[in-house]
Design a binder for these strands. Structure first.
Lengths: 185, 185
DNA sequence: ACCTGAACACCGTTCAAGT
DNA sequence: ACCTGAACACCGTTCAAGT
């Protein structure tokens, strides 16, 4: 039974979820598929491309909110992005890295930028605001996930998920206030 | 001549600047000091601790603006943070990773949080805003530095530093607008 | 106090050769 | 078309032993 590209991505995502990014090696993905590491290079040119595909798979889970007023739409979208990232171990770090390399296919900033542009913001400002929202979320979740892992191992104590959610919402609300100020008549 | 802890950090920073984070290995740092990799473990318990020390050294270069009104103070501080990060290859990625592990000594969020609290913002909101500012900057610079490296190798074309500066300023301004809204009477 | 030598258990990647 | 075997050039980390 030949392994297909999608099988490789699924296996990699499974390893990420169970063991984290540090254990996501080509050799481990291969052995999960009962195949040697070298075989993966038939499907992907290198490890980074495989990681980008995993990041894309994760981001595809973010469902866009129903069309509506820009502020609740953005608040909901940001929250869904956060929740999706939290569902997969080390996902924020993985997505950040992929976003930086530019290898990912999913354009994370486009949906919020479109909404903001539709609300009357200039295109450049809309893109800048979308980037800010994305970086804010990735940064907060990345810190939260690392802390969660560390507290699991017992290195650090008292990781509070509700406090993290509030922190994130506070940062987002600040940005949305700034946007409301820009969009006022 | 015995190698001291500070020598190790300086050598590591030199390798980071010249060759980037991927080439910053214990073996390379050792050979730059004419010492075997194992010798470094006399000074640091592991690689992460050495990286944290390097991150601290970089962040120590950020000089706080003169005391003054919160808005220009924060704008200046954020800009200096960005400029400092840009002076060292892959610095944003390194600092982000260190910040997540909690190993770093420099508390990046405290100065802006203090200024905001002094301006009348509640302590929790001040901390959340400071975190937002930091994550925004780290995310933008991290992307910028990766793109800069890629464009150096020729993988990607047209990295525009001025556009990146404008993007960052736009994101920060948005947040500061939100803060101004909160701090209005 | 500080370092070497040498090992252990890994990595990502390549590529001829097989089926 | 897809995979193995086997290698290449590396990693971080440990630790007895040396000075």
């Amino acid at each position: 039974m030949a392994v297909r590209r999608a099988d490789v991505v699924a296996a990699a995502l499974g390893i990420l979820d169970q063991f984290g990014l540090a254990d996501l090696t080509m050799r481990r993905v291969g052995s999960a598929l009962e195949v040697k590491a070298g075989a993966l290079y038939w499907h992907f040119p290198n490890k980074q491309s495989l990681l980008a595909a995993v990041a894309d798979a994760i981001l595809a889970e973010v469902v866009a909110p129903e069309p509506g007023p820009w502020r609740p739409w953005l608040a909901a979208w940001t929250d869904r992005l956060r929740t999706t990232l939290l569902r997969h171990r080390d996902a924020a770090e993985l997505v950040s890295a992929t976003l930086a390399t530019g290898l990912g296919a999913v354009d994370l900033g486009t949906p919020p930028a479109r909404v903001l542009h539709g609300a009357g913001l200039g295109e450049a400002d809309a893109r800048a605001a979308a980037r800010a929202l994305v970086h804010l979320t990735l940064g907060q979740v990345s810190e939260e996930q690392t802390r969660a892992t560390l507290s699991e191992v017992g290195v650090v104590s008292g990781h509070d998920p509700e406090a993290a959610a509030r922190d994130h919402a506070a940062g987002v609300a600040l940005l949305l206030d700034g946007l409301a100020f820009r969009l006022r008549d």
